[in-house]
């Protein structure tokens, strides 16, 4: 790599022998010792857009269509009906838990009550988060399963996850615009990059944490790989996977707010607008709305996880 950097650099000295007579290059980092990653990546990215543009266009149209239909449907519904559906969803998903339901009902009501503008904006945000999460689930859970089954796959994917989690979000928000244009789709893309790693990790961990003896028992009775996975590993890993889904939701919501900076419509742009106008009240109000939305998402996914956990890990002990 050093040789490549040297030969391609325009700052390199006349000949290599100069380096052994003049040692001034040992002082500051020499300009010729520079890996030409940037032009390489730029070329690659250009080529990607030129040659696979149609492919990204296809993804873009599909996701945008999905988003628009979903949004239009929900915005078209009268608000009391939507509110009641969310509350009903929460009630059944949480296993008829009244406390959680009342809390969620309160939050849903307050979204519109804070400012009537927020209602539709929250719907937009919700649609983006839901689509982003679906994408995470469809891709994240199978990848997690593959990782848990195969050590080589895990070793290959772990560094990618590390990269996804540590690279600053703006580094893929902006290229997201180049690939998918402005609006909802780059936000969905950013959500995917940002929120899928914890889901993958927790799926992988959940499956590997299933009691070894229980898995061995399934094997000893002649369960095929498929039977082992669906009958034993996934059900027992479900509490962990649900934890991952919950994490994924929270991170999606965080990202959708940041994504308002690349022109994604939703509750996040209210915060941005407030800050741009130095209207602290407006920004805070929008901030509260985001918190309420987060509570709704969190409570619904969390209570579903708890319900599943209660079912699969029956902790009730009978007195015998």
């Amino acid at each position: 790599m050093v040789v490549v950097a040297y030969t391609t650099s325009k700052y390199r000295p006349e000949s290599v022998s100069v380096l052994f007579t003049d040692f001034s290059w040992l002082g500051n980092w020499p300009k010729w010792l520079d890996l030409p990653l940037m032009p390489f990546l730029n070329d690659g990215f250009d080529k990607l857009i030129r040659e696979y543009g149609m492919f990204f266009e296809g993804i873009n149209n599909f996701l945008l269509g999905l988003y628009t239909d979903m949004k239009n449907f929900m915005v078209g519904l009268p608000w009391p009906i939507l509110m009641i559906s969310v509350i009903a969803l929460c009630y059944f998903v949480s296993g008829r838990n009244t406390g959680t339901t009342i809390m969620v009902a309160f939050c849903v009501f307050f979204l519109g009550f804070l400012s009537p503008r927020y209602w539709d904006k929250c719907i937009m945000t919700t649609c983006i988060v839901v689509i982003g999460m679906l994408l995470c689930l469809i891709i994240g859970i199978p990848v997690g399963i593959l990782m848990a089954r195969n050590k080589k796959v895990r070793n290959a994917i772990l560094p990618i996850l590390d990269l996804m989690q540590t690279i600053p979000s703006f580094c893929y928000l902006i290229p997201g615009i180049l690939l998918f244009g402005l609006g909802a789709v780059p936000a969905i893309f950013a959500i995917f990059v940002y929120a899928v790693p914890p889901l993958i990790r927790l799926t992988d961990l959940g499956i590997r944490l299933v009691d070894k003896e229980v898995v061995e028992a399934a094997e000893a009775f002649g369960a095929s790989k498929k039977q082992k996975l669906w009958g034993v590993q996934l059900p027992l890993a479900l509490p962990n996977i649900m934890q991952g889904v919950n994490q994924c939701t929270m991170m999606s919501l965080a990202m959708v707010v940041i994504a308002s900076m690349i022109g994604t419509r939703g509750i996040g742009d209210e915060v941005l607008l407030g800050l741009q106008q130095l209207n602290v009240g407006m920004a805070t109000e929008a901030g509260i709305a985001i918190v309420l939305l987060a509570i709704i998402f969190d409570r619904i996914t969390q209570s579903y996880g708890e319900k599943i956990q209660a079912r699969t890990h029956n902790k009730k002990k009978l007195i015998l």
Partner: peptide
């Protein structure tokens, strides 16, 4: 494994779900 032998485990290896 299905037809020739079965196994009993030290910590039971039962399916909790």
């Amino acid at each position: 494994r299905r037809h020739k032998m079965s196994m009993v485990f030290q910590r039971f290896g039962l399916f909790p779900h």
